[in-house]
Design a binder for these strands. Structure first.
Length: 325
DNA sequence: AAATACCTCAACCGCCGGGAA
DNA sequence: ATTCCCGGCGGTTGAGGTATT
């Protein structure tokens, strides 16, 4: 096989690069009439000088009739962040919970939008994971998922599953952990807060274990600050609402629907704050405008004088943006 | 207005696992 | 048991568009 060509293309003279409208039409017509069947024969049957992989990719990522396209909504963005927090860079798995979205789309969105903001948010006051023995040790084993997740939800940890990509805070002397908080034995500080009963079966598959939050860290959230309202829930966890951002959603897809419910119940300060452009230099690119958080509603980040940085990147996000799109 | 920098995203690359031969 | 083929996936690239200087 020549350099840069798939094994599936080695016997063909295949076209590469962007697809023309004519090629799209051929592929759509063929698949609409016959289904795709074996992708390796699709190009021949459809009259295309492309390799099967290219046809498959074009169909899945662009031509499929059930694609949603367009900008990601705030709910979708929030769900992606949360799922990424759990699954890491498993874009295909994440995309399965976002109807009409492809793994490529989700991946691009993450790389060009969310990740950038997460990192920008943390560069100024975060230490590399490698500086945190207790944390980095926990990243070495998938079996420590519980601990990682606990850490993330209770301290300002960016996606636990991809700590190689982002930064987490150090418990520096000038930034001490709450009194009584055991930095090593995190589970000792945590209690379950994720209302699993509100999840449907797919969500249970997705979140096979409870999410934990630190009771120590919850305490400061009981205060009302600026326009934020911290609402205590029956399960002792909280969520935030803003004056112009009451949690409400529009016909969410299956998981997003349950996700919405759990958010409302679960609460916690919202992870969306770290991608708030007003606070962290978020650009206002036209392609991400749906993702722009509300301004002036009290969600431009936690006041640093009140909350420890560890609290500023909560686990569950999005409800504060629910009414903003 | 032109040059440059930056951003987005469609498409490709290479690897992997599963199944058939 | 081994090889081959295929679909699927995550990482990466680069063309084209947009913003900035």
């Amino acid at each position: 096989m020549g350099h840069g060509h798939h094994t599936c293309c080695n016997k063909q003279k295949v076209k590469r690069g962007l697809w023309s409208p004519e090629e799209d039409e051929k592929l759509v017509r063929h698949i609409s009439a016959n289904g795709h069947g074996c992708w390796s024969v699709v190009p021949r049957l459809a009259g295309l000088q492309r390799c099967g992989k290219s046809c498959r990719l074009r169909w899945i990522n662009y031509l499929r009739p059930d694609l949603k396209r367009g900008s990601f909504s705030a709910q979708e963005a929030a769900l992606i962040i949360d799922l990424h927090n759990i699954l890491g860079n498993k874009w295909a798995q994440i995309a399965k919970h976002l109807p009409g979205r492809t793994d490529n789309e989700v991946k691009n969105f993450w790389n060009s939008n969310i990740k950038k903001k997460l990192m920008a948010r943390n560069l100024s006051n975060m230490a590399p994971v490698s500086d945190l023995p207790a944390f980095s040790n926990m990243t070495n084993s998938r079996s420590n998922f519980h601990a990682l997740y606990s850490m993330n939800s209770s301290s300002n940890l960016i996606p636990t599953a991809q700590m190689d990509q982002v930064y987490i805070p150090a418990a520096a002397p000038n930034n001490p952990l709450p009194q009584g908080f055991d930095q090593v034995n995190f589970n000792a500080n945590l209690h379950p807060s994720f209302p699993m009963s509100s999840l449907d079966s797919s969500a249970h598959d997705l979140l096979p274990m409870p999410v934990w939050i630190s009771s120590e860290y919850q305490k400061p959230q009981l205060t009302d600050h600026h326009h934020q309202q911290f609402i205590k829930q029956e399960d002792t966890s909280m969520y935030i609402t803003g004056s112009a951002a009451a949690p409400e959603f529009i016909n969410p897809p299956p998981l997003m629907g349950t996700y919405e419910d759990t958010s409302v119940n679960n609460g916690l300060p919202k992870l969306c704050e770290i991608i708030n452009g007003n606070q962290y230099g978020m650009s206002s690119s036209s392609t991400s405008q749906d993702f722009e958080p509300v301004s002036g509603a009290g969600f431009s980040g936690f006041p640093s004088d009140l909350y420890a940085p560890e609290m500023q990147v909560p686990l569950v996000i999005y409800s504060q943006y629910g009414g903003m799109i």
